[in-house]
Design a protein around this nucleic acid. Structure first.
Lengths: 234, 234
DNA sequence: GAAATAGTGTCTATAAGACACTATTTC
DNA sequence: GAAATAGTGTCTTATAGACACTATTTC
């Protein structure tokens, strides 16, 4: 039996790093310095190095881009993108996309890296378009994030160590793009075992009753789930 | 800035093809003919070819292994496995794992391929162990399949074109490894919009009342979901 | 009629959603 | 007290689950 050629390819890990700024869901984008797509906006990413896995590549890129320790941030695979013409370079470049979730960071973007990185509202990114097949990657990562909010406790990854129930609700509202009932959300979250635990402290508000502060609980899955309201059919 | 070497790698698509035989969840495994792991059982898979995407590689392998048209079968990505030592060959081999779901096939395994492929109960496969990191891939694919049953209509992919509600229930029972209440399951499925639609025909039974036959409906997602019973905590 | 599987009725427990209401703060 | 945000109570509806019961077949 004749041996087919086994093409080798270059592999990158691309990151969809989401955060919420002023109640708006934002994604970290970089302006590309080199061809292909020089000058265009793209998702941050980088090539796999010799003795690391793609998960490690993604974690390294994440810490380079955000200055945060990847071990403490939520990071998960979205999928592989391997259309032969997705990147004009040769050898072919296949990418594994990762979803990362970050709390609102002190610096707009930062990073040890010279690239011009900044946060862009997701709606803006989708309107203006990104390089490569990054529009599709962003769409898929968003859908994953929206689904994960229902069944996991990752919403707390958007928050600082201590947060109020109102802030957690704003995470759901920003990612899902809906308004949620405050009283029902409060009850659902505080009564769900392992989702959040009270820190005992309160955060004074300049405008109303101080809110109790919570920390992320030990659970990683939410049961029962917090189902996203279905869009009205009519 | 000095240019780092960009290692190139070989990429495979590996398949976790599940089916149900006599009420037992089975996975298609092949006996490896060549090193590494010659003689050991492994998941079927193959290398990416020149001008195809990994999704196409997976679809091609699936049709080679099962003789079925991949376009009609459920096929989705599970994840990428890229640990540097997961495959001893050089250049490194990264794999993208796919989950495929097949109805009970006429032939035990078949395929145009000379490899010894056969169905193995999933519990057997997990007990005896597979080559490479295929134990982990199988575990992850199973967990994905179990989760997908809750929120999507893929359970019908395990069934023939026409099936009874009892057969559909056996899919859930085999994949989840639980017993479900027959009356409640029947109602839930038949009242869920777009999950199944009656074909009008009935299938006589040698032992009891004939069951009405159904076809897969148009919906791909189940709402409300069919939640898997949580294991009793105590 | 007995046995077997298919399917319906009905009651109860749990969760979701609407929304009135109370609580605690700043001004 | 007004305004604002936090949080509780309570009622209604949707869904899940238990399980008694009816329906249709073969023997």
């Amino acid at each position: 039996m004749s041996r087919r050629p086994r093409p080798t390819v270059a592999i990158t890990a691309d990151l969809v790093i989401l955060t919420i700024r002023d109640g708006v869901l934002c994604v970290l984008v970089v302006e590309r310095g080199n061809d292909p797509f020089a000058g265009r906006l793209a998702l941050p990413g980088g090539f796999l190095r010799g003795e690391e896995s793609l998960d490690e590549t993604a974690a390294r890129e994440l810490s380079e881009e955000t200055g945060l320790d990847a071990a403490t941030l939520h990071l998960q695979q979205v999928g592989v993108y391997s259309a032969p013409d997705r990147d004009p370079r040769r050898p072919r470049v296949v990418t594994c996309a990762y979803l990362a979730i970050a709390p609102n960071l002190p610096r707009p973007a930062a990073g040890t890296d010279a690239k011009a990185a900044h946060w862009l509202p997701v709606t803006e990114a989708q309107r203006t378009g990104l390089a490569f097949d990054h529009d599709q990657i962003l769409t898929d990562a968003l859908e994953l994030a929206r689904a994960e909010l229902q069944f996991s406790t990752i919403a707390t990854a958007f928050c600082d160590t201590e947060f109020t129930i109102g802030e957690l609700r704003e995470v759901y509202e920003a990612v899902w793009g809906v308004d949620l009932d405050k009283p029902n959300f409060h009850r659902k979250v505080t009564e769900s075992a392992g989702f959040v635990e009270p820190s005992g402290a309160k955060r004074p508000s300049p405008t109303g009753r101080p809110a109790a502060l919570y920390r992320a609980g030990g659970a990683s899955t939410l049961s029962p789930p917090m189902m996203r309201p279905r869009p009205a059919s009519a």
